[in-house]
Amino acid sequence: MKTLVFLEHHGQAISKASLGVLSKAAGLGGETAAILAGADLAGLAAQAGSFGAGTVFLAEDPRLAAALPQPRVDVLAGLVAGEAFDTVLFAQSVLATDLAAALAVRLDAGLNWDLVDLELREGTLVGRRPALSDSVRIDVGWSSPVRLALFRAGAFDPVESDARAELRELHVELDERSLRAELREAAAEEPSGPSIEDADVIVAGGRGLGGPEGFALLEELAEALGGAVAATRAVVDAGWYPYPTQVGQTGKTVSPRLYLAVGISGAIQHKVGMQGSGVIVAINKDPNAPIFEYADLGVVGDLNEIVPRLAALVRDARA
């Protein structure tokens, strides 16, 4: 087995999830290498070298400054073919998902995603994936010479070792067609304000609230329960509630004892940020909402009636 792990970075930090995948890959044996692709890798190469990779490939080019997938497909496709890698692994993210899917097509390589584990079973590579809102667990395999996999963020913890990888700079060749999508502007959002990550109880609101004024209901309920208020990406994007309160793939990952989802449909993007919660209660008027598939208690009804009534009941119970 000859494995390549894509290390994702932002600024001068390598994603912990991708280092976790690298450590996992190194533990499976065979040859393990990692690839960093960006415009300024000087400070990153050293960080990458001590998580189990024998070699860290560096693709440094100003055209790789933006975190866009298509130029990276060119880099990885060339490297996989040139070095005869048979396995390429990624930690799931906005960038890595697009990159892995496109690379699968370029290399005619099978891609299994949302994996939580990977093992060699009598020489055969087997991935493990929860499916149908985690109601079933599936063992998956590959029938192509090159095997690609995306892992859930946080599937593995990075394990640091004393070993140092050999660093190898790559000559970067990019197809003009891969450079047509261009980053025009990026605005970093710095986390600020009250932290939802430490809250025992979270009352979260989504598009079903109907507008920013709907959050007043949630704030009242959260206060009664002694919890914090969180939001989905859809309402943060719409400007109804601030970004630091966002739960989901591109927001925060939370695991409170109680997660009360109000007017939230339950997209995967949201689910990955809260599926570790102790007890999940969902209120939604749409009986088809995916959130009901992983809520311990699902309530189909009008949140405008239920939430104030529940807040009053909670206050009474605590009084």
């Binding site: 699968a104 005619d108 390589a109 099978g110 891609l111 299994n112 087997v126 929860p130 985690d134 109601s135 079933v136 667990r137 599936i138 063992d139 998956v140 395999g141 590959w142 029938s143 192509s144 009986p287 009901f292 598939e293 992983y294 809520a295 311990d296 208690l297 699902g298 309530v299 189909v300 009804g301 009008d302 009636e305 239920i306």
Partner: peptide
């Protein structure tokens, strides 16, 4: 031809009973 295969299915670790009520 598909390049991925499903090898086995298993029940997930129990999350407990799920309940749905209508208001």
């Amino acid at each position: 031809t598909s390049r991925t295969t499903v090898l086995a299915l298993a029940a997930p670790p129990a999350r407990g009973e799920r309940r749905i009520v209508r208001d």
